[in-house]
Design a binder for these strands. Sequence first.
DNA 1: ATGTCAGTGTTCCACTGA
Length: 285
Amino acid sequence: MRIATWNVNSIRTRVGRVVDWLVREDIDVLGMQEIKCRPDQFPVEAFEHAGYDLQIHGLNQWNGVAFASRLPMRDVEKGFPQIPGFGKPPVIEHDLDGAGLPVEARALGVTVDDVRLYSLYVPNGRSLDDPHYLYKLDWLAKLRDAVNGQLAAQPDLALALMGDFNIAPLDSDVGDPSFAPGVSTHISPPERAAFAALEAAGLQDVVRPLVPEGFTFWDYKRLRFPRNEGLRIDFILGSHAFADRVTDAAIHRNERKGDAPSDHVPVVVEIESDVEDDDMPMIFG
DNA sequence: ATGTCAGTGTTCCACTGA
């Protein structure tokens, strides 16, 4: 089973590119971030024509996460337990957190085969002195708590968190010179500690061992891509039961090229699975 | 050069977010 994550930066702008890529790369399940639309605005036809079903969590023009899958998805979950909200208490039509703040569309869980997958768009943080920064850290702490709870109940669950974490865990993940220690988000010690806490909760980066080098995001500004001044901020973090089944991984850097690319590229893993696999050798029959 | 994108409303530009 081939599983991928991609911050598409507006699915309405990127639909042709994304569906072409899904088909060309033989992807079974794609978690998307920053779809930037509501379900009624999502270009479902192009996906369905290519054989993909959709689960969509989008509230407005900001954020938004989704799954496209050609295998059945079940147990769809918007958000996660204790997910914090942010902003002013809303007037109407919002899910609220425990403090009465609106919960943004940043997390979506589905189960495919026996694998529990989450598409995550971690808050950006904006700047170290912005309230969004504390929101980011709280959001990550609650995510860690949710992972702890999930794996305490099911230690051998094949679980993967995948998405745009807006954290560069290692100095080698930072090639963009506008991100500087002490002044920038994405690289601050508390953010890196929050990422490490996810690892301590029982998740591991299943891509880095197979793809030790390379970024997943390059800012549109300042020739960041031609200069290869990017960041590695998109990850697939798997439980031991997930990680043990990973057979391949890739960062599709070429998707940053050509007409109207997203500023992020897809990250892909292949895992052993009983369902699917028309390209698996038939050892029976 | 605060530089490029995307979405929306205040709509053919200005704003917000990343």
